[in-house]
């Protein structure tokens, strides 16, 4: 197999451009978390990408020289066609699939089990080892559903990562019991992501999280039904209105259009504080 050629591939290889392309599969969610960047809830406008669009993004990302994919939402597993689309996408690039871990029962669990693949990781959100604290931000019974789902998925051979979003210091000892819980499932420490709340979307309305400007946000290409954005923290929603400050292009396919716009935007942008802030 020959390596991808061209300015995007070169930029990914030399580290100018992050290798991962994010896709917001949809904006609606069965939860309504207090710090949600996209104000997602059961009542949110769906704003879905189609399966064909997501597969095309995967195929073209590989051709351009990107190295990985990420899928987020909303809650991606609310889309009935998602597992089959993901299995097609991973034929092109490895991917991480962010989700809230609350829907893996019955038929949905068995459909998710099809995602036992070395190129697919399910990243499930869990914010505290204390059910009340976790559920205060993420909704009733969230903790119990997640701690039931993770072992079920692992038993079925699905790779699981855990993401913890915190308002406190990223290295706080208060997170140690949560880290121990995650380790007890056999999830490696490197697969437990701890990150700050970013003050955009609903978090901004409520005054939560760290302030971040464009150069503080990882410059990953992010594809949504509303267009392409600078970073997965770009297409946020505030008071029902889509933020456009990090919009790159309304065109999402061919992927070279937004990819080149991102590359142009990165040019001349001073180095940001994403690493110092722990935004990922």
């Amino acid at each position: 197999m020959t390596a991808a050629q061209g300015p995007i591939a070169d930029a990914v290889r030399d580290g100018t451009l992050p290798g991962r392309v994010w896709l917001y599969s949809n904006y609606h969610c069965n939860l309504a978390c207090s710090y949600c960047l996209t104000e997602s809830s059961p009542r949110s406008e769906r704003r879905e990408l189609t399966a064909a669009q997501m597969i095309a993004v995967a195929e073209q990302a590989k051709e351009l020289g990107f190295t990985a994919l990420g899928i987020t939402g909303g809650e991606p597993f609310l889309l009935p066609w998602l597992p089959e689309a993901v299995l097609e996408m991973v034929q092109h690039l490895p991917l991480v699939l962010l989700n809230n871990g609350t829907l893996f029962v019955g038929e949905r669990l068995e459909r998710a089990a099809k995602l036992a693949h070395p190129g697919i990781a399910l990243q499930i959100s869990l914010d505290s080892h204390l059910p009340d604290i976790n559920d205060m931000a993420r909704g009733p019974d969230n903790f119990s559903k997640v701690v039931e789902s993770v072992p079920r998925l692992l038993e079925r051979g699905v790779q699981v990562r855990i993401a913890t979003t915190t308002a406190g210091p990223l290295d706080s000892p208060a997170l140690d019991p949560l880290k121990a819980l995650v380790a007890s499932w056999g999830v490696p420490a490197d697969d437990h992501i701890v990150r700050p709340i970013v003050r955009r979307g609903r978090a901004d309305e409520r005054g939560l999280g760290v302030q971040a400007i464009a150069r503080d946000i990882p410059s990953e290409l992010c594809i949504t039904a509303d267009g392409a954005f600078w970073g997965s923290f770009g297409p946020t929603v505030r008071n029902g209105r889509l933020d456009t400050d990090l919009l790159l292009t309304r065109t999402i396919l061919p992927l070279a259009v937004p990819a080149n716009a991102l590359l142009a935007a990165i040019g001349g942008m001073p180095q940001g504080a994403d690493a110092a802030l722990g935004i990922r």
């Binding site: 464009a214 600078w230 933020d243 456009t244 400050d245 990090l246 919009l247 790159l248 716009a261 935007a265």
Partner: peptide, 11 residues
């Protein structure tokens, strides 16, 4: 009509 706060990066 976008303004300085809401204008996309490239604009």
């Amino acid at each position: 009509l976008l303004d300085a706060e809401t204008a996309p990066l490239s604009a």
